[in-house]
Amino acid sequence: MSPLSAGRIGALMLRHGYLLRSSWPRLLDMIYWPTVQMLTWGFITLSLPLPEGVAGQGLGVLLGAALLWDVLLRAQLGTSMSFLEEMYARNLGHLLASPLRPIELLIAIACVGLLRTLAGMVPTSLLAIWFFGFSVYDMGLALAGFFGALVLMGWAIALFISGLVMRVGMGAEALAWGFVFAIAPLSAVFYPVSVLPPALQVVAWGLPSAHVFEGMRQLLLTGTVDGAAIGLAFALDALYLALGIFAFLRFHDGARDKGRLLQTGE
Score class of each variant (00 low, 15 high):
126 L>H: 08
259 G>W: 13
46 L>Y: 14
230 I>L: 13
32 Y>S: 13
215 G>A: 15
240 Y>M: 13
155 W>R: 01
51 P>R: 12
14 L>N: 12
74 R>W: 06
198 P>V: 09
250 R>E: 13
125 S>W: 00
165 V>W: 01
92 L>N: 02
214 E>P: 02
60 G>S: 12
8 R>N: 11
206 G>L: 14
262 L>P: 08
244 G>S: 09
151 V>W: 01
1 M>E: 11
118 L>C: 06
225 V>S: 06
133 G>D: 07
137 Y>N: 10
88 Y>E: 14
261 L>N: 06
23 S>N: 14
202 V>K: 12
149 A>L: 09
216 M>T: 03
26 R>T: 07
33 W>H: 05
116 R>S: 04
40 T>W: 13
102 P>Y: 10
113 G>Y: 01
96 L>I: 14
173 E>T: 15
225 V>W: 06
187 S>R: 02
26 R>D: 11
209 S>T: 11
19 L>F: 14
142 A>Q: 03
140 G>T: 12
220 L>S: 01
55 A>M: 10
196 L>W: 04
168 V>F: 09
144 A>E: 08
1 M>Y: 11
159 L>Q: 03
197 P>H: 08
259 G>K: 10
213 F>D: 00
170 M>Y: 09
149 A>V: 08
18 Y>T: 11
60 G>H: 02
37 Q>W: 10
196 L>H: 05
82 S>W: 01
32 Y>K: 10
188 A>L: 04
37 Q>K: 13
162 S>P: 03
19 L>S: 15
73 L>S: 01
248 F>W: 05
257 D>F: 08
55 A>W: 03
132 F>W: 06
191 Y>T: 07
237 D>N: 15
237 D>G: 10
15 R>H: 12
195 V>H: 08
146 F>Q: 00
217 R>G: 03
231 G>R: 04
109 I>N: 01
144 A>S: 13
186 L>V: 08
208 P>S: 08
48 L>P: 07
235 A>P: 05
120 G>A: 05
200 L>Y: 07
240 Y>V: 05
163 G>N: 05
250 R>N: 14
111 C>L: 15
11 A>H: 05
224 T>D: 13
242 A>S: 15
228 A>Y: 14
211 H>D: 05
144 A>W: 15
126 L>C: 08
82 S>K: 00
248 F>T: 02
123 P>Y: 05
121 M>A: 03
213 F>Y: 07
8 R>I: 10
11 A>P: 06
141 L>K: 10
229 A>W: 00
187 S>L: 04
224 T>G: 10
136 V>H: 00
215 G>H: 02
62 L>H: 03
249 L>W: 07
71 V>M: 03
234 F>K: 04
218 Q>A: 13
79 T>L: 03
111 C>V: 14
124 T>K: 02
223 G>H: 08
197 P>F: 07
120 G>W: 00
102 P>V: 13
44 I>T: 12
206 G>V: 07
242 A>K: 09
28 L>E: 09
190 F>M: 10
62 L>A: 11
178 G>Q: 08
165 V>H: 01
22 S>T: 11
58 G>F: 09
205 W>E: 05
129 I>V: 15
25 P>E: 11
122 V>E: 06
89 A>F: 13
13 M>R: 04
21 R>G: 15
242 A>W: 11
